[in-house]
Design a binder for these strands. Structure first.
Length: 429
RNA sequence: GGAGAGGUGGCGGAGUGGUCGAUCGCGCCGGUCUCGAAAACCGGAGUGGGUGCAAGCCCACCGUGGGUUCGAAUCCCACCCUCUCCGCCA
C-alpha cells in the first residue's frame, strides 16, 4: 500500500512510475477521493468537538448544581447526536473507500527495472551451466521410463482431480531429499533461520502480503474463513505484522519448507501434463525483513542463495530481471531464476525473488525503530529457494539416460543413503 | 469441547461513570553533579488522523465490533485471543 501523503506531495512521480506498468490516471482518482475524504473528516470532527465541549460544560454545570444550565446543555448534545452520526459515517466511509482503492494499487517499479509490456521485455542478467548434449531425444519428466512408476497422475485424479500427483518410491525419496538439501544449505551455509509455520491463516495475513483483496480467486478458503497459503511468504512475512522491531534485530532472514496451495484460476490449458503446475506443491521459501536502505543488497544476497541450490545440483539456469509489465503486484524489483528443462528444450521458472520495499510493511503495519528514533516501515523481501516439485522435474529431466534411468546429482547422494541413480525399472540404486 | 481467570503505553502493573491518553516502577532520551562513569536529582517522551507557515489546536485509540449515558478504559451484549484445570486427540 502507498503513502497517501507521498502521493499528494508528488503525484507526477507516481503517475510516471505507474505508467511504466501500463496504468494511467490513477493519482487523479486517488487525490479526488482523498480531498473528499478530508472534507468529510473535517466536518465530522468539527461537529464532534462541539459535542465534546458541550458535554464537558454539562458536567461542570452538574457539578456546581446549575440544573437549568445542565438541562439546556444536555438537550443540545442530544440534538447534535444524529447529525454527528451521519457525518461520522460519511467520513468513515470515505476513509475506507480510499484505503480500498490504495490497497488495489500495485507497487512502483524501481527506476533500474527495465520497461516492458510483457515477458518479452525481461532482461537476462546471468547464465550458469551448459545444457547437456543428449545423444537421444530427451523426454519430459513424466515420460522417463524410470520415473513413471513413481509419478502417478491417475491415482491422484481419482483422489483429487486434475493438477494433483501421487508420488511413490524413488521419486518421492528424491523429492524429499531435495527439500532437505535446500533447507540445510540455507541454514548452514546461508545463515537463514529455519522456520515452520501454519498453512492456514486469517484473512488479514492474506491482505498483508497482497494476495487480497485483488487475487482472492487464486487461493482457497476454508468454510470457517481461514485461507490456505499459496506460499509461505504469507506466514513468514506476516510474522512481523503489527510489530515495532529494534533496528539491531535486523535483518531477519528466514526459510521455511511448506505445502503451498493455488487454484491456478486463469491458467487452464497451461502445463496440464506432468507436475509442473499443481494445486498443491512444496516450496522452500526465503523471506528477509530489513531496513529499506539494505533491501537491494539483501535482494542480491537472496538471489545468490537461490542460485547456489541450482549450482549444487549442477542444473543449468539463467537469471532474468523482470520488466515492469511482468512484475508481480507487490514487487519493486524481481529476479526470476529459470532452470533448463531438456524435455521441453526451454528455461522454465523455478524461483522468483522480489523486494517489496515498504509496500507490504505498510499493509501489515510492520515497523522498526532506530535507537532514539521514530518508528519507520520495514522492507520485506521474498524468494523461492526453490520450488521443490519443479526442482524434482529439472533433476529428473537433466539426469535422464538413454535407457530410461536417471543419474542423480552428487550433492543429493548423502540424502539418498548413498544411492546415486534411479534405475530404468524405477528402483533407487 | 467444558469450567475458571485475564487482555491497559517498549515491558511490568494501577485505575470500576466526569479535565484519564491514563498513577507508579523498570527501561529509554536530555541535563545537573563527576576527570570519566555509576548512583542520586531535575526534565522529556505513546500511536494514527485532521488543520495550520509555525507554535499549536482538534478527533480517534485502554483486544475487536456494537450498545447504554449529557459523558465510558470503567456499565451491558457479541466476537477474537491468551493463560490454568478437565475432557478428547496425531
Amino acid at each position: 500500500m502507498h503513502d497517501i501523503r507521498a502521493i499528494r506531495e508528488n503525484p507526477a512521480a507516481y503517475d510516471a512510475a505507474w505508467a511504466r506498468r501500463g496504468l494511467s490516471g490513477l493519482t487523479t482518482r486517488v487525490l479526488a477521493l482523498d480531498e473528499d475524504r478530508r472534507g468529510k473528516i473535517l466536518a465530522s470532527e468539527t461537529a464532534t468537538a462541539e459535542q465534546n465541549r458541550a458535554s464537558k460544560e454539562a458536567g461542570a454545570a452538574k457539578a456546581r448544581g446549575d440544573e437549568a444550565e445542565f438541562a439546556r446543555l444536555r438537550a443540545l448534545v442530544t440534538e447534535k447526536k444524529a447529525e454527528i452520526q451521519s457525518l461520522t459515517e460519511d467520513a468513515a466511509g470515505q476513509d475506507k473507500a480510499l484505503r480500498d482503492l490504495l490497497m488495489g494499487l500495485p507497487n512502483l517499479p524501481l527506476d533500474e527495472v527495465p520497461s516492458g509490456a510483457d515477458e518479452s521485455g525481461n532482461v537476462e542478467i546471468h547464465r550458469w551451466g551448459t545444457p547437456r548434449n543428449f545423444d537421444f531425444t530427451p523426454k519430459e519428466h513424466f515420460d522417463i521410463k524410470g520415473v513413471t512408476p513413481g509419478m502417478d497422475f491417475a491415482t491422484a485424479a481419482k483422489l483429487s482431480g486434475s493438477r494433483f500427483v501421487v508420488l511413490k518410491g524413488a521419486v518421492t525419496r528424491v523429492h524429499r531429499a531435495l527439500a532437505q538439501l535446500m533447507l540445510d544449505t540455507h541454514v548452514e551455509e546461508h545463515g537463514l533461520t529455519e522456520t515452520w509455520t501454519p498453512v492456514l491463516v486469517k484473512e488479514e495475513a492474506m491482505y498483508g502480503t497482497n494476495q487480497l483483496p485483488k487475487f482472492a480467486e487464486d487461493s482457497y478458503q476454508t468454510t470457517n474463513g481461514w485461507w490456505l497459503i499459496p506460499t509461505s511468504e504469507v506466514t513468514l512475512t506476516n510474522s512481523v505484522a503489527g510489530d515495532i522491531l529494534d533496528e539491531n534485530q535486523l535483518p531477519i532472514r528466514m526459510t521455511a519448507h511448506t505445502q503451498c496451495f493455488r487454484s491456478e484460476a486463469g491458467s487452464s490449458g497451461k502445463d496440464t501434463t506432468g507436475m509442473l503446475r499443481q494445486h498443491q506443491f512444496e516450496k522452500v521459501e526465503m523471506v528477509t525483513i530489513c531496513t529499506p536502505e539494505t533491501a537491494l543488497a539483501e535482494h542480491d544476497r537472496m538471489t545468490n542463495c537461490a542460485q547456489a541450490i541450482l549450482e549444487k545440483l549442477g542444473l543449468p539456469y539463467r537469471t532474468i530481471v523482470l520488466c515492469t509489465g511482468d512484475m508481480g503486484f507487490g514487487a519493486q524489483k524481481t529476479h526470476d531464476l529459470e532452470v533448463w528443462l531438456p524435455g521441453q528444450q526451454k528455461y522454465r521458472e523455478i524461483s522468483s525473488v522480489s523486494t517489496c520495499g515498504t509496500f507490504q510493511a505498510r499493509r501489515m503495519n510492520a515497523r522498526y525503530r532506530a535507537p532514539g528514533g521514530k518508528p519507520e516501515y520495514l522492507a520485506t523481501l521474498n524468494g523461492s529457494g526453490l520450488a521443490v516439485g519443479r526442482c524434482l522435474i529439472a533433476v529428473l529431466e537433466n539426469g535422464q539416460q538413454a535407457d530410461g534411468s536417471v543419474d542423480l546429482p552428487l550433492a543429493l547422494h548423502p540424502y539418498l543413503g548413498g544411492k546415486t541413480r534411479i534405475a530404468a525399472d524405477g528402483i533407487l540404486a
